[in-house]
Simulated assay, not measured.
Amino acid sequence: MKKVTLSLTLAFCASLLFACQSKDKVMTMLDGISSISISESNSYGGINENYDTTIDKDAIISRVEEVFKNAEGRKQKIDVGTEKPDYDILIRYENGETHGLHLVLGNTGEKSRVMYVGHENNGFNISSEDTKVLKEVLDNQ
């Protein structure tokens, strides 16, 4: 009986570890984004609340949300003392919750990176195609 209990416990713990690792592979977005506010970033670790633009049109929100959902997780080393992201993004949800993000926007044909504020070493790569979408959204605001 002890061997069965131990085996079940080990299997459960292993499944939890695999589940936790898979969370780093995709961005967690909640349903019902009400707005996306964007500002030039001053540094890692916080959000510049002097927003240049706020997006509240459903069609544009859907495009940006799809870009973030397509981003692929990866560990990265960020020197928060010398580097800085290009943009800070505050995502507001209809239920009142928020997500703060940093965006390092790539040039045309390059990947970009996005990460949750406070979790800068767990970044998400945005494809060059989706970088183009982000550039279009930012240019048209």
Rank of each mutant, 00 (worst) to 15 (best):
G96H: 04
L17G: 07
L10F: 13
R74E: 13
K25I: 04
E110M: 11
R63H: 07
E129T: 07
F12R: 01
S43T: 07
E94G: 03
K23C: 09
N140Q: 09
S35F: 02
I55W: 05
V104D: 09
R63W: 00
E83T: 08
G106A: 07
H102R: 10
S127L: 01
E72N: 13
K111T: 13
S35Q: 10
Y51G: 04
K25G: 02
F18A: 12
E120H: 10
V137E: 00
I126E: 04
H99N: 14
L134G: 03
I126R: 14
D86C: 14
V137K: 08
L16P: 03
T82F: 15
T53M: 09
G123M: 06
K75S: 15
K2L: 01
L138W: 04
K84R: 15
L8E: 03
G32M: 06
R113P: 00
V137Q: 05
V67Y: 06
L16S: 03
D31S: 15
M29E: 03
K23N: 10
Y87R: 15
K2I: 00
N50V: 11
T54S: 08
Y116D: 00
E40P: 11
C13M: 13
Q21S: 10
C20P: 00
E129V: 08
E97F: 08
N50A: 13
D88C: 14
P85T: 06
N70P: 10
M1I: 03
L8S: 02
L138T: 01
E65P: 12
E94L: 09
L6N: 05
I60T: 15
L134N: 01
K111G: 07
L16G: 09
A19P: 00
N121L: 09
V64Q: 10
N48M: 12
Q76H: 05
V137N: 03
V80G: 07
K3N: 06
H119A: 11
M115G: 04
F18R: 10
N125I: 02
S7M: 08
F18V: 07
C20I: 05
I60Q: 15
Q76C: 14
N121W: 06
P85A: 12
K69D: 12
L138S: 04
K111S: 13
S35A: 12
